[in-house]
Design a binder for these strands. Structure first.
Lengths: 362, 362
DNA sequence: TACAAGGAAGAAAACGTTTTCCTCATTTTG
DNA sequence: CAAAATGAGGAAAACGTTTTCTTCCTTGTA
C-alpha cells in the first residue's frame, strides 16, 4: 500500500514543473499541446487527484458547507438536510452535518469544530444566546434556519405565529370550544406559537390549556396523553407541538377508546411524510421543511459570495394548512360563549405576519 | 473582520517559539510553569484555535469519518446515521455524510470526494462492483454496512436470508397459503430475501408471487397496491420490501375496503419507529438499524487503528421478528395444499445463517 | 572543580498545494 | 536588423501546522 501520488510525481513524470501542472489542472493557463498531452497522460497513468486539504490551506476555501440540526431522527430535520444537500451538491459542495441532540451540552464544541472545516453553515438547532455569538465570532458565514438570528445575520424560517393562528382559527370555525396545546417550551418557535394561539383564541373568548411535553417525540406524545384526557374538562381539540407528538398522542388516545375525530380533534405541525398515513390521517400545517433547507443553503451561498443585499434579515416561508381526517366540524356546545366574538375579526394572517422584523417573502 | 490568529501570533505574544506552542497544545512536552502560563494566557487572549486543515496536512489524519447512505429520508438509514454519529462523537471524530440517492449516477464522484476528506468511511449504499473497487483503490479504510464487501474488506449487516425465512415461516404457521412479496430487485438484500422466502415456502409447497416496486418508498407501496389486490387469486398475506412500502400499501388497501388483518395480513421489514403507530400496528422484522450504524463505526475505528483480526470478514446482526397487529392467525382454507409439508422441517434460522461467509455473531 | 547527563526551548524541514513574480525564447513591429 | 512585445513555463514563497534534530543551560556526580 504505497502513498498516493502528488502533484510532484505528475510533474516529474510529465517533465514539467509543478507550477505548470497546477495551472493546467485548474485551467488557469493554456500550454503547448505537447505539454498538455504529457501532463494529462501522467495524471491518468498515476491516477492523480489533488489533495483537497492542501488546496484548502492555500485558497482558504474548503469546498464544504455544514448544516447543524437538532435530531436526525425527526423527519422535519431530515427534510431540511435533504433540501440543503440538494443545493450544496448542485453548487459542487460537500455537506457536513452535525446532530446536536446526541451531545448534551457540547453543542458549541461541535459547531465550533464544524465551523473550522467548512466555508459556511446553516444552523437549525436551538442554542443559548452566548454560544450563538461564539459561533458567529469565528467569522464564517452563517445562516440560521428556523429562528431569526441576531441582528445582521440572515435567517430563514416559517411564520410560526401565522401557523398557530391558522390552526386556532380553523378549529374555532369548526366549532371547537375547549382547546389544548401540547407545547415544548425550550423550542424556538414555541413562544411565537403561543402568541398566535392566544391572540386568536382570546378574540373569541375561548380558553386554551397548555400541557408541557419534554421533547418533540412520539414517546412524549404517548406519555402526556392520558393526563390531557383525564382533566375534568376534556378538551375537544388538541394541538400538538409537532406531528411526532401528535402521532404518539393519537396512538394512546385511540387505545383509550377516544374516537378521533369523533370525540376529539387532533392537529399536528410540520406535515412530515408519515402524517398522511396515520389513521385518521393527520390534519397539520406544512412547514415546508425541504424548502427551508434549500432556501437556507441558497441564502448561505449568496452570503459566502458576498452578494447579500443588506436589507435581507429574515426570510419567511408561509405555512400552509393541510386539513385531513383528524379534525372535524363540531356542533357548537350549549356551553359555548354567548353571541359573537368580542373583538373585530382578527387581522388576516398575512397582515399579522409582517411584524417584528424586516420580513421578505419568498 | 480580521484574520484568525495563528500559532505564530500566539508564539509572538507569549514570547516563545511556535514549536513550543505546538508542543504545549498537544501536551507533547512539559515546560517551565512560567512559559506554560504565558502561552495559555496568549491563547485565551487571542481566542486561538488550531487550524485542523494545517494539522491534517502534516499528520495525515483528518479527524473526520464519513458515512454514505442511500436516502436520508428513510428512517432506516437515519437510524444508521444516528448510531454511527454516536460512536464517531465518542471517539472525538466528526461525521461527514453523503446521500447518494439525490445524485443519480454520480455516486462514485461523491464517495471519492468524501474519501479524500476523511480517515475512513462506512458505506451503506448500493453501488456497481467496479465503482466499489475504485473507492477501495484510494486506500482509505472502508467498512460496508448492509452488504458483504469484496474479499478482505470488513462488513456488517443483518442476515437477510434469516429475516425472510422467519417471516415466511411465521406466515405459514399462521395459516397463510397465498403469499405475495413486494420486492425491489436493485436493492442489495433482495436476492437473499427471495432465497429465504422461497426456501421456506417451497418446503411447504406454498406459492409465492412476486411484485416489483420501483423504490423503497411509501409512494411505491401505494402505487402497487391495487394491482396486487386485483389479481384473480388474491393473496392472503403481503410481505413488503420495507416498512415504508408497507405503510403506503396499507393506506390504499384500507381505502379499497380491504380489512387488515381480517382479509389480508401485511408485514414490513426494518421496524422503523413509525411502524408501531400505524393502524393496525405493523408486524415487521427489526433490522437493528441503529446498531448497524454503531457497530459499523466501531468496526471502522478498529480498522483505522489497524487492529482488526484478519478473520473478521462479515459481522452479522440477528434480525428479530416483531409481531404486531397487521398479521393474524388464519383458518386454513379448504383450497389449502393437501397434507403435510413435503420435506422435513427446514433447518433452523440459526443454522441457516452460517453459510457463505465467515460469519461472526455479535 | 570538571564533566557527564538531562531537560527546556528553538531552528528548520516537511506536508501538497496555489500563486506571484521572473526568465527567456519567440514573434511582431518599426 | 534591432528593439519591443508576447507568451510559455519555471522558481520560490506562502498557507499553518507537526516533528525531528540541535543547542544551550542547569543540575548532579566524581
Amino acid at each position: 500500500m504505497r502513498k498516493n501520488p502528488t502533484i510532484r510525481d505528475v510533474a516529474a513524470k510529465a517533465g514539467v514543473s509543478i507550477a505548470t501542472v497546477s495551472k493546467f489542472i485548474n485551467g488557469a493557463q493554456r500550454f503547448t499541446p505537447n505539454v498538455e498531452r504529457n501532463i494529462q497522460a501522467a495524471i491518468d497513468e498515476l491516477g492523480y487527484q489533488s489533495n483537497p486539504l492542501a488546496r484548502s490551506m492555500i485558497t482558504g476555501k474548503t469546498g464544504s458547507v455544514g448544516v447543524a440540526i437538532l435530531d436526525i431522527c425527526n423527519p422535519h430535520f431530515t427534510n431540511i438536510v435533504k433540501g440543503a444537500n440538494r443545493v450544496a451538491l448542485e453548487q459542487g459542495y460537500n455537506l457536513l452535518f452535525v446532530d446536536t441532540e446526541e451531545s448534551q451540552g457540547r453543542e458549541d464544541e461541535l459547531l465550533d469544530a464544524l465551523s473550522r472545516r467548512v466555508d459556511g453553515m446553516v444552523v437549525s438547532t436551538r442554542m443559548p444566546e452566548d454560544q450563538l455569538h461564539r459561533i458567529l465570532a469565528y467569522g464564517k458565514p452563517v445562516v440560521f434556519s428556523g429562528r431569526p438570528g441576531p441582528r445582521g445575520v440572515p435567517s430563514i424560517g416559517i411564520d410560526a405565529y401565522a401557523a398557530a393562528y391558522m390552526i386556532a382559527e380553523m378549529l374555532v370555525k369548526q366549532g371547537h370550544r375547549n382547546i389544548a396545546y401540547l407545547g415544548f417550551a425550550p423550542a424556538r418557535p414555541d413562544k411565537e406559537r403561543m402568541r398566535g394561539l392566544t391572540d386568536c383564541l382570546d378574540a373569541y373568548d375561548i380558553p386554551l390549556t397548555r400541557h408541557e411535553v419534554r421533547g418533540p417525540t412520539m414517546a412524549e406524545g404517548e406519555r402526556v396523553c392520558s393526563s390531557v384526557l383525564l382533566r375534568k374538562s376534556k378538551p375537544d381539540a388538541v394541538i400538538c407541538y409537532n406531528d411526532m407528538v401528535a402521532i404518539g398522542f393519537m396512538g394512546v388516545a385511540k387505545s383509550l377508546g377516544v374516537s378521533i375525530p369523533g370525540d376529539l380533534s387532533v392537529v399536528g405541525i410540520d406535515n412530515i411524510p408519515f402524517s398522511r398515513y396515520t389513521s385518521p390521517a393527520l390534519t397539520t400545517v406544512d412547514t415546508q421543511s425541504e424548502r427551508l433547507g434549500e432556501e437556507g443553503m441558497r441564502l448561505l451561498f449568496r452570503h459566502i459570495a458576498g452578494d447579500l443585499p443588506a436589507d435581507v434579515e429574515h426570510m419567511t416561508l408561509e405555512p400552509r394548512l393541510v386539513i385531513r381526517e383528524s379534525t372535524q366540524l363540531r356542533v357548537t356546545l350549549p356551553t359555548a360563549p354567548e353571541g359573537k366574538p368580542r373583538r373585530a375579526k382578527p387581522t388576516s394572517a398575512a397582515a399579522l405576519a409582517s411584524r417584528q422584523l424586516t420580513y421578505r417573502r419568498i
